[in-house]
Amino acid sequence: MLKLSLLDLVPVTNTGSIAQSLTNAADLARHAEALGYGRYWVAEHHGMQGIASAATAVVLAHIGQATSSIRIGSAGIMLPNHAPMVIAEQFGTLEALFPGRIDLGLGRAPGSDGVVARALRRNLASDERQFPQDVVELQAFLAGDERLGIRAVPGEGTHIPIWILGSSLFGAQLAAMLGLPYAFASHFAPDALDEALDVYRRQFKPSEQLAQPYAAAAFNVFAADTHEEAELLASSQQQAFVALRTGNPGKMKPPLAGYKDSLPPNARAILDHVLQCSAVGTVDDVRDGLKAFVARTGVDEVVIASSMYDHDARKHSVALAMEAARSL
């Protein structure tokens, strides 16, 4: 059966609260675990009213307490925001609390802007040398490498699985060079998907962590009992993408009937392009979408992204996605 995992941005609605979003995240994680999802991943973003997962390790501790077997992790920790030792300590603590269940996905995007970068006290310049160095240093902390001259406690000796995340060829090349699993952010940045996966597989070098390439890719699913309902549910995420692309991000808005058709043609084209790795509709629609996506990419795992305004509708969508995967 197709392996499915779930990506959660812990969305905050315009009528909800951060506390409610975190409660929903724990409930959704329990639901995903019961359905048979393999992983529950949380993404780091900063300074955004509509996303409650900025303190990613803290959110994962909350998710871990609510679940018992599903793997939990980051998709990802934006490593330029942090000293590698700090991440080793945070995820070493998570591994101590939830042994054998932690994934550490790393990205080099800031997940913020320059103002937030300064507030984080980090240099977020896109340095193609610094990020690989930080990844290797983090690996060394998790391995307890004595050459560092300092110990990450908790963290050392945990060998927590590291993933490289990306939406360009850079991440694919780095994952291949270090022999790490690779996940592509095709749910919002699909342009380099095929080329990146090809580069990753061709250039992959086995490592202690991984003997052969292992690739995942993100795919949006908005599923409901009818196609019309699914289209309506998808409109909240569509509004969020348009708001972000026009420099006006905010809390998630309720579904809006006919939203996409109300946009000018150029805006609709942008939305169709950004969300091209998506399935909107019934179980059959999702099954066909997943089947085509896996046939195209050959990925070992699909990471479902499915932010919705209504929590119960989202839980139902996640269940329908798993039903579709089981039918493949």
Rank of each mutant, 00 (worst) to 15 (best):
R296S: 05
Q65F: 05
D310M: 03
R147V: 08
Y214C: 13
Q90D: 13
A234S: 15
A54F: 12
N266K: 11
L244D: 04
S327A: 15
I72A: 03
E228A: 15
I87M: 12
D27Q: 13
A257H: 10
S17M: 10
L256G: 00
A189F: 08
A295G: 11
H82N: 13
A230M: 11
P11E: 04
L320S: 03
F293C: 08
L142Q: 10
E137M: 12
A66I: 08
S5D: 06
R202Q: 15
Q173A: 14
N24M: 02
L106I: 05
E156K: 12
Y37P: 02
M252Y: 11
D285Q: 06
S168M: 06
L233M: 13
P190N: 10
T226V: 06
F91T: 00
K251Q: 15
L138K: 07
D312Y: 09
A32S: 06
G155E: 04
V274Y: 00
L35W: 01
Q238S: 07
V280F: 07
Q173W: 02
R245A: 10
G155S: 07
A109M: 03
L142C: 07
R129D: 14
E231I: 09
H316R: 15
L138D: 06
Q133W: 05
D312T: 13
G149N: 09
T93S: 15
S168H: 05
R202L: 08
A313W: 00
L180R: 10
T297Y: 06
P80Y: 02
G38H: 10
L148Q: 14
G258T: 08
S126E: 13
I102D: 01
S186N: 01
T297K: 09
G157D: 09
I162A: 01
Q276G: 00
I77K: 03
H62R: 12
E195H: 09
L328D: 12
I160L: 13
N81T: 09
L233H: 13
Y214E: 14
E323Y: 01
